[in-house]
Design a binder for these strands. Structure first.
Ligand SMILES: [Mn+2]
Ligand SMILES: [Mn+2]
Ligand SMILES: [Zn+2]
Ligand SMILES: [Zn+2]
Lengths: 155, 155
DNA sequence: GTTGAAATTGAAAACCGATTTCATTTAGGA
DNA sequence: TCCTAAATGAAATCGGTTTTCAATTTCAAC
């Protein structure tokens, strides 16, 4: 790892090593705060900005990507060999992964049609998980929209 | 429209009418600031928070959904009869839409497998558009990641 | 081993879009 | 017309992200 970073012009430090290791132990969808807490369990002297900067570095060297789910918190997801999508429960915020090999194929094709150079694909299903659905805690009182409403509105 | 809102318990006001109309004139991927400016062209007395609140209302009644592309700015996208995905250029921030009927089918199926109640699907391709690719302005010096790096890191 | 330039760190401040507060005004049913 | 709930505008606040800056540390070159 040290070698790997040095070839990119980055130096290795005790903090960095701890942060990198902790990140991969946490594994999925890690927020700055979560990683900060994890790191602090071992070394209380590590600063928040150092954790933040190293999370950015992990992305820069291609080991993770940022994930934004609209709850205002940026999470960092390790890069997996096989791409995956996310099932995001809008009630309990739980996140599940599912495989998207077939879909990515279609998307790559689409990108080609638009002469677009894809860097990565984001595939998310937002909704409510089994538990939340069952608990009936979800109050979906969204107005029933009709084509007329929209048309009317548009003029 | 007034009728439509009243049945939901909302009142109609001059500001609201102007904001709603302006939103649908702008059409796609509207940010609060953009809408605020557009509204202000016609009525300088309308406040920012009123624009913001009405954008939220437009979502609540199901006429738009929030879109977060990771650039820190929330955009509001009108709801379309046929679902669409987004091609997002990480360089010039341009946004193009493409149809995703087939993909949504697969996603609905996936949701079913997880007993998940989907509310909406987010399908994005992040990368670089033709122009930015051609201009060679894009400096992709992302480290070439190998499986070994990751494995090594993980232990 | 010593040295020095460049990278890294930690604390604090700055940033900035999103959201809330609150006093005042307004809509619309009774 | 009257009354109450909803809506508004300005300003303050919130909270996650990013930058600043002085001090420290790494590591390649001697
Ligand atoms: Mn994931
Ligand atoms: Mn769109
Ligand atoms: Zn849930
Ligand atoms: Zn572009």
């Amino acid at each position: 790892m040290k070698e790997f970073l040095r070839t990119k012009g980055f130096k290795m430090t005790p903090q960095r090593e701890l942060i990198f290791r902790s990140f991969f132990e946490l594994g999925e969808h890690v927020s700055v705060d979560e990683l900060y807490d994890k790191v602090r369990e071992i070394d209380k002297s590590v600063g928040y900005s150092t954790v933040w900067r190293n999370l950015k570095l992990i992305c820069k060297v291609g080991l993770a990507i940022e994930v934004n789910l609209g709850d205002g918190i940026t999470r960092y997801d390790r890069v997996t060999k096989i791409p995956h999508g996310h099932l995001y429960c809008m009630n309990c915020k739980k996140l599940e992964e599912f495989s998207v090999e077939q879909i990515v194929g279609l998307l790559a094709e689409t990108a080609g049609n638009y002469k677009f150079a894809p860097e990565n694909f984001k595939i998310e299903i937002q909704g409510y998980c089994v538990d939340c659905k069952a608990d009936n805690k979800v109050n979906i009182d969204k107005a029933s929209v009709t084509a007329e409403n929209v048309t009317e509105m548009k003029q």
